[in-house]
């Protein structure tokens, strides 16, 4: 049990670093715990594409919207100009409010999955029952 406790303690500090990983401690966290995912956030590309007739725009690190409960590094993802609520998982994968129980490797594949699910429907602005 002592071993598990030690590992739990280590896991906690790794989690705390991950939380800070999107701010000043990014380099440290990336080096020590999860270089791939931290790097993925840092290098998220700007995307402006038409996919199945819908315009997908991704702006890296432009998040921090609506109440700021998200990390500042969260990208802004828009479909036909409407923002898609996205979230980054601890392992570096992504989910959105449209696909909330299924993870995607990057914001682009996440946005494309949302477009497929929407079948032409428009996103509703956050928090609003339109």
């Amino acid at each position: 049990m002592n071993k598990i406790t030690r590992r739990q303690a280590l896991g906690t500090s790794a989690g705390a670093l991950t939380a800070l990983g999107l701010t000043a401690a990014a380099a440290t966290a990336a080096a020590r715990t999860e270089p791939a995912s931290a790097a993925a956030v840092g290098t998220a590309r700007t995307i402006d594409e038409v996919y199945q007739g819908r315009r997908i725009q991704i702006a890296p690190g432009a998040g921090g919207h609506h109440g700021g409960h998200h990390s500042p590094g969260t990208p802004s993802v828009r479909i036909d100009g409407r923002e898609l609520h996205v979230m980054r998982n601890a392992d570096g994968s992504w989910i959105s409010v449209i696909n909330h129980y299924e993870t995607y490797a990057d914001p682009t594949s996440l946005a494309r999955a949302a477009v497929r699910d929407l079948q032409g429907a428009a996103l509703v602005p956050f928090g609003g029952a339109a």
Binding site: G15, T18, H69, S71, H85, M87, N89, V97
Partner: peptide, 9 residues
């Protein structure tokens, strides 16, 4: 579900 994050509350 929108507010629960791995790195925050």
């Amino acid at each position: 579900i929108m507010a629960d994050t791995d790195s925050g509350d």
